[in-house]
Design a protein around this nucleic acid. Structure first.
Length: 387
RNA sequence: GCCCCGGUGGUCUAGCGGUCUAUGAUCCCGGCCUGUCGAGCCGGGUGCUCGGGUUCGAAUCCCGACCGGGGCGCCA
């Protein structure tokens, strides 16, 4: 826009406030001085929607903004291309998961998010009312996807919100997250589950690299495609690694965050960003996980770790009715409250296994985002319920 | 919930007992300049989270509330 030639138009242009929505009519012509090689010589400018000032959040300015300010004004925050890029990547991840699992014969399902009873007991549930009755927001599709294993829908997955009323205040927890769950029948053993999960994750990273190049460049991210099979690190070996690094974890106890990070850096030194931590003690896993027949204190369970953070947990499920009921009692749960679930095990249930995988966390680690909230459009945490 | 750190114009910051009628940037307003830039220059505008206390004097020190950041627990 030049002042000489059309002073009135220049004047009106200079009155337009930042972030206004405008329509410009004019001539496009090449110009080597301009970044993209083209410039638009305006002959007419219409303001379709004027912006107010000052902006509650800088968009094109030199100054930054704190996370809280950003999430209070997410619509403006997302006008920054590098913030939008995260969601292009997230979308590519989701497309890749669906594409890959469809090719493996999976069916995408949806299970209820309103439930009459707590799924696994212990976990903190959001309570709500349902026509005068108590109801809860689902914290996991676990029991439903297992029920489906008795139906002939042998391979299912679900990508849906999950709710946890745990007051966790960390960069990797939110109260509403997107869970990618899968469950597979007729498995031989856990290896079948490992292969499916690692193949799916590797495919997702490959596809993001291929299809979200611009977004990755904006985010200065360069995720590595893992070599398969991923390292399987049994719990007992993990404890040894910790001991060799001066950290003692009692055999049978859970590995705390510090330990998890130590193992993460140990395996990173061996070149493993992604790996399975396997065969956890039975005592720290839920009732539906199958114990090892030869060492019942340990289980056919696993976590998938990525850059020292937990992405998924899963395992082979206990499909034998009597054993399952006994395990519930051992964990202090009353089987009567789970009749809707147990019923499905009484009339023929194939051996099966699966996982629950955190999409938001995966996008966070994939892009090395410092906070999981960055990977969510409108995050929900202990204090944030708006917008 | 516990531990550590912090709350200064719309936004992001400097200041950490008097020299603060508070720094710089951004933004907005006015002016100048300008062929490429989240351009530049000049002038103006907007602020110490709230409530107590200490002190001759508090943005600055103490206590509390509220809010935020990080860590832990827990997990996806």
């Amino acid at each position: 826009m030049k002042k000489k030639g059309n002073e009135a138009l220049f004047e009106s242009l200079s009155k337009i406030l930042r972030e206004s929505v405008i329509a410009v009519q004019g001539t496009v012509q090449p110009n080597p001085q301009v970044r993209n090689g083209w410039e638009l010589l305006a002959s007419r400018i219409d303001v379709l929607s004027a912006s107010a000032a000052p902006l509650p959040l800088p968009v094109a300015d030199k100054v930054g903004a704190e996370m809280d300010t950003r999430f209070d004004n997410r619509f403006l925050d997302l006008r920054k291309p590098e913030h939008r890029a995260t969601f292009a990547v997230r979308s590519a991840v989701l497309a890749a998961l669906r594409e890959h699992l469809a090719a493996q014969g999976f069916v995408e399902v949806h299970t209820p998010k309103l439930a009459g009873a707590g799924a696994e007991g212990g976990a903190t549930l959001f309570e709500t009312t349902y026509f005068g009755r108590k109801a809860y927001l689902s914290q996991s599709p676990q029991l439903y996807k297992q029920i489906l294993m008795s139906t002939g829908l042998d391979r299912v997955y679900e990508i849906a919100p999950a709710f946890r009323a745990e007051p966790s205040d960390t960069v990797r927890h939110v109260t509403e997250f997107t869970s990618f769950d899968a469950e597979v029948s007729w498995i031989e053993n856990q290896e079948d589950v490992f292969r499916l999960l690692e193949g799916t994750v590797a495919h997702a990273i490959e596809r993001v690299r291929a299809e979200a190049k611009d977004a990755l460049a904006l985010l200065h991210a360069d995720p590595k495609v893992p070599r398969l099979p991923l390292r399987r690190l049994p719990y007992a070996e993990a404890l040894e690694i910790l001991r060799s690094r001066g950290k003692h974890v009692r055999d049978g106890a859970d590995i705390d965050t510090e330990g998890e990070k130590l193992i993460g850096s140990a395996l990173a030194e061996e070149g493993h960003e992604l790996y399975f931590l396997t065969e956890y003690p039975t005592s720290i896993k839920p009732f539906y996980i199958m114990s090892k027949p030869d060492e019942p204190d340990f289980s056919f369970s696993f976590d998938l770790e990525y850059k020292g953070d937990e992405m998924a947990s899963g395992g082979q499920r206990e499909h034998r009715y009597d054993v399952l009921v006994a395990k519930m009692r051992e964990k202090g749960l009353n089987p009567d409250g789970f009749e809707f679930y147990l019923k499905a095990f009484r009339y023929g249930m194939p051996p099966h296994g699966g996982w629950g995988f955190g999409i938001d966390r995966f996008v966070q680690k994939l892009l090395d985002l410092s906070n999981i909230r960055e990977a969510i459009l409108f995050p929900r945490d202990r204090v944030r319920l708006v917008p």
